[in-house]
Design a protein around this nucleic acid. Structure first.
Length: 297
DNA sequence: CCGGACTCCTGGTTGC
DNA sequence: TGCAACCAGGAGTCCG
């Protein structure tokens, strides 16, 4: 379940390693990992081999690397989504392949030499694709892959508009966790950090958005940023320059979780038991005492 | 607009 | 010990 912090750690690790490198070979071991590429694997390989990587970018949980061929501008990108279990591993060219490697990309960097980028994914919810870069719409000259165009900016994005978010949130008529997980409203938040931020803000996951006051919404957004920022800081320190190994588990810093996966354990704030309920086909972890649905007044 | 159901998927864990 | 059932959920789509 890589969320914004885990994806950002991957992006930050890839940046110095692959920016400016040229693709020398691509192997697709499982075409299911190209689900979001709208042409056969041969097309994916043809468009990648010989092209040069630009600086890796990210929006929410989507990661992409602009590619250019010869004299052409960067009008396409390699789009990466880690899904539930995806990993991007940087390896020496002759290192053994992980058993679950779905796609492997060989690159040559003018200074760092040869390198292998392995896309490892157990559950194959993740994917790689080559996609056209299009204007993001809100900031002139800002390009995003077409399949990312509908994804909202994430709360760590300098262009994230707090006021607009509050307005859109207030107009929604749904439960707050559903809204937090809606990537078209705010991106980068998944099940873990949604539960953590709601716990920190003392808000029940099914609190109707119209009943959430502006101050409480502001508190929630602040807690979202705190939770993401903290995970980012911890993830950043565990990064090994030699290998990018950002998997769910290793990136999750379970020692710092207050609600997610803590069912049956005491709430770190009030000592009452954290419970887990099914909601939206996933688990919701919360403190029934600290996080109660609030009615009008 | 909203929510629910369904799809994709498999390794690790649990239960018998 | 062996095997089957179960579980995790990000994102897209479709339907009522």
């Amino acid at each position: 379940m890589p969320e914004l912090p885990e994806v950002e750690v991957v992006r930050a690790g890839l940046e110095p390693a692959i920016t400016g490198s040229t693709v020398t070979g691509v192997r697709v071991f499982d075409e299911r990992s190209l689900r979001r590429h709208d042409a056969p694997a041969e097309d994916f390989i043809d468009r990648l081999v010989g092209s040069t990587f630009g600086e890796p970018r990210r929006r929410g949980k989507f990661l992409w690397v602009p590619v250019s061929t010869g004299s052409t501008r960067e009008d396409e990108a390699l789009v990466i989504h880690l899904g539930m279990s995806g990993q991007v591993l940087l390896r020496e060219p002759d290192a053994p392949l992980d058993r679950l490697t779905r796609i492997s990309i060989d690159v040559a960097h003018p200074e760092h030499g040869s390198l292998r980028i392995d896309f490892v994914d157990q559950r194959i919810f993740g994917s790689m694709a080559i996609d056209a870069l299009v204007e993001s719409g809100d900031v002139p000259g800002d390009l995003v892959p077409s399949q990312v165009a509908h994804i909202a900016r994430d709360p760590m994005d300098a262009h994230f508009d707090d006021a607009r978010f509050f307005e859109k949130l207030a107009r929604r008529n749904t439960g707050i966790k559903r809204a937090l997980l809606d990537q078209t409203l705010i991106s980068g938040i998944g099940n873990i950090y949604a539960d953590e931020a709601l716990w920190a803000a003392r808000i029940h996951y099914d609190q109707p958005t119209p009943t959430l006051s502006r101050p409480r919404a502001k508190t929630l957004l602040a807690e979202v940023r705190l939770v993401l920022g903290k995970a980012l800081a911890e993830g950043g320190t565990s990064f090994d320059a030699q290998y990018l190994n950002v998997n769910g588990e290793s990136g999750y810093f379970s020692h710092s979780l207050n609600a997610y996966g803590q069912q049956g354990l005491p709430c770190p704030r009030c000592g009452r038991m954290i419970v887990r309920e099914q909601f939206m086909n996933r688990g919701s972890h919360f403190c029934p005492w600290c996080q109660r649905v609030r009615t009008g007044r």
